[in-house]
Amino acid sequence: MHVPDGFIDAPVSVAAGAVAAAAVAVSLRGARRELDERTAPLAGLVSAFIFAVQMLNFPVAAGTSGHLLGGALAAILVGPYTGVLCVSVVLLIQGVLFADGGLTALGVNITDMAIVTVVVAYALFRALVKVLPNGRGGVTSAAFVAALVSVPAAAVAFTGIYALGGTTDVALGKVFTAMVGVHVLIGIGEAVITAATVGAVIAVRPDLVHGARDLRRPLELKEATV
């Protein structure tokens, strides 16, 4: 869903760039609070992880395959601020280095793929974790729903940006139906993979799942009779 140059007109691209810059600035401050002076190496390695995991292909059927977008996963594993930063950095590098996504569309790409995905996923995840029963099942189901909703939410955000500054003459309704329809399908795959991945992490290192860190119980000493 990397938007190329010329898809969104210049004024709206610049405005989206300003929104993205502001959100990244807020995230930089927030990430320092989440990770203190470990921010640079840890966020950098998590970005490298997202970059790598986007290359992990999940076969669907008949030769087609999908891959993880990683916004919801990043939000749940490392927290919203670091998540926004990591996905933004991945998009920046993909734009500057691999010409994937236009340079002027960088603001648009960061706004809908980094900010909207991460914020929606994290808000939903936190709300659900509070409601659902404690434990691994509750966390993975919350991750499932958060990822499921976050992808179409990004598509809705994109349609909004398109409504403001789209350069093509396709009716808004058609864009909306196509984008949201396709992304609901993508969202299902994203949800299954995200939930399974969060489940795998929580089974081994529950302390590394940022979104569920307050579910951790303190270590307790138990008497054992030999």
Binding site: L45, V46, F49, V53, F58, R205
Partner: peptide, 21 residues
Amino acid sequence: HWGVLAKSAGALFIRSYERGE
């Protein structure tokens, strides 16, 4: 087979994070 791949992704995250530390 997604379960296996997702476990790989989880392991990859843990390894990346620990490498970061």
